[in-house]
């Protein structure tokens, strides 16, 4: 009860700060401190958003499809990698440095290559998203699996548990918290990754829309699409939170 109250008050504070910022921004624009063609006012952005709403939604559908497909494959891949590296120390020693290496290559640099190899359709975009999203999951889940309590594992062994049972009853559930933290990051990466890959080549999607309005110097539409992207990322992260709450009910359990 008290926690809920705290949540509400903190939400009120955030909303108030946001509203103040928007009002300040509107004032700056109305008073002409920054020229209108460079910085559109919040009202203009809202108008642009409403005007292009159907178009934005159709692009959004493409971007989200890419993001979800990429996220799903990336998370699955990252998870399997983590489990294998935890199980086989050899694999860990061989592949972990390589996994880290993949993250030192900037996504923007790889995207044009992927376009050249796989064309302008979905494939190169999904691959790019997989590259950016698998990493947090691999690292998070691996850390979770490796931090399993030794005494607990020994106790289960004394009860005759095999290594798969120890994985199932101790390691895997123990890594859930880490998994969801990583998933939250990966979910945000997936949208950004999709947009970046669309910048560099494609026919549909919010990234393509972005390049088009940029070429037309339509700043209000630029802001509208940026706003949309961040809202979508935020919603995705909230969705992960929600799923986590459902999957880990013990997190809320405390001595009464």
């Amino acid at each position: 009860m008290r926690k809920r109250l705290q949540n509400i008050t903190s939400a009120i504070n955030t909303l108030a700060a946001l509203a103040a910022l928007l009002i300040l921004w509107q004032i700056v624009c109305v008073m002409g401190i920054v020229p209108g063609f460079m910085l559109p006012s919040p009202v203009q952005v809202a108008r642009a958003f409403a005007g292009d709403f159907p178009l934005l939604m159709s692009h959004l559908r493409v971007t989200l499809t890419e993001a979800f497909a990429g996220l799903f494959c990336g998370v699955a891949f990252g998870f399997v990698m983590a489990v294998l590296m935890d199980r086989f120390d050899r694999l860990y020693k061989a592949f972990y440095p390589l996994v880290v290496l993949t993250q030192t290559v900037p996504a923007v640099a790889v995207a044009p290559l992927l376009v050249l190899w796989f064309g302008y359709e979905m494939m190169p975009k999904i691959i790019l998203i997989v590259i950016t999203t698998f990493f947090p999951v691999t690292v998070g889940v691996l850390t979770g699996l490796r931090s399993a309590d030794r005494d607990t594992m020994n106790l289960l062994r004394s009860m005759g548990a095999g290594s798969f049972q120890i994985f199932r009853y101790v390691k895997l559930p123990g890594a859930m918290g880490q998994f969801f933290s990583s998933l939250r990051i990966s979910a945000a990466y997936s949208v950004v990754g999709a947009v970046i890959s669309e910048w560099l080549g494609g026919f549909n999607g919010l990234g393509v829309y972005m390049t088009r309005v940029k070429q037309a110097f339509a700043f209000d539409k630029m802001f509208a699409v940026i706003f949309l992207i961040s809202v979508i990322s935020l919603l995705l992260m909230k969705l992960v939170d929600f799923i986590q709450k459902k999957c880990m009910p013990w997190e809320d359990a405390h001595e009464s």
């Binding site: 005494d151 607990t152 106790l155 009853y169 101790v170 559930p173 123990g174 859930m176 880990m248 013990w250």
Partner: peptide, 11 residues
């Protein structure tokens, strides 16, 4: 066996 730590699985 049973230890000083209960080692119950929290989840």
């Amino acid at each position: 066996y049973m230890l000083q730590k209960d080692l119950l699985l929290p989840y």
